[in-house]
Amino acid sequence: MKKAALLGLLLVLTASIPAYADGIVRFQCDEEDSGTEIYIDGKFAGECPADVPVNAGTVQLRARKAVQDGYERIFTKQLRVVDGVAQRVEIVLSAPQMTSETRLKKETAEADKLVAAAEAGDVEAMKKLAQRYAAGSGVKKDPAKAQSWHNRAEAATAQKQLRAANSGDIKAMLDMAARYDAGQGVSKDHSMAQVWRERAETKSRENKTQEEAAKRAKELQAKAQAKQNKIDQFSFFGNTSKFVNGAGVDNNNITSILLTGVPIMTLGFATDLISAPTRTTEINKLKNEATVRPSTWGKPDSMIARASLQLEKKRSTAENPILVTAAK
């Protein structure tokens, strides 16, 4: 706490005092503290500097200095005055604080605002207003009004929760169930409380299903993304650079592949493996076309192109192939 300016007061209690009092309290003060009002047992006793007659016994000392409109600095202390004993007391004035009149005005103004807001339907305002009427803070203490505003606040809260519950908010549904059980903001109704609990359970199950579905969708999306990434980052030649670079080893493998059965079977196996909607005859047809297309496209008068045309013609006229396989 900020220390207030020091007001030095020397209280001197003497025995040679008028007969109507047990002693005189002398208030001396610095120049800047002059004008500080002195109260003894709540009665104004003068302004510093001043000599104030005080009866022996316990007295309530209060010093006050106004600092600006509505604010003051104060000091209070209980003193025990003993006849013939002198005491030296240091008094520290407080930081500037609202005067009681000012505080009352402010609380009254706030209460007026709360009333306006509560009347407009602000639930929080209603709750605060109920508290004020209960405590007499800024308004005249009025338990009946406090209860009234409390009830209105609960009713408004219940309406708000009902809307939330109807829109699928599980917590609001459970709150409504509790309200119906307790009759808080709504008429007490255990069957309605049960309805809202069941609705909450149903909604919870739905939400769980939806969450799982969303999770699955998210996983599928992640998989799709991973696949897309794989496609984007596909490295066709990543593991087979030798093949591309013509280092020869794989070409030799190709040579062996063309000669023997296992790689042939391998190709068939790989074809089956991927479950592609392609069959041997279709692949053969595609391969034949793929083999002739470069020359047919790039050099239409080449023998490859002529052979392709001749084959097409033969197929279209359904001639028998000349190399009859044993299978036939």
Binding site: F236, T240, F243, D250, N253, I254, I257, V262, P263, T266, L267, F269, A270, L286, K287, E289, A290, T291, R293, P294, W297
Partner: peptide
């Protein structure tokens, strides 16, 4: 048509090329 044939040709080349690599990959797996 000429452009389309060119595009088909490139995709067919991808088929032929990957077919060779598939055979090698299959042999390696075996």
């Amino acid at each position: 048509k000429h452009l389309r044939e060119a595009q088909i040709m490139l995709e067919e080349y991808a088929v032929l090329r990957s077919e060779r690599m598939m055979m090698i990959a299959g042999a390696k797996y075996f």
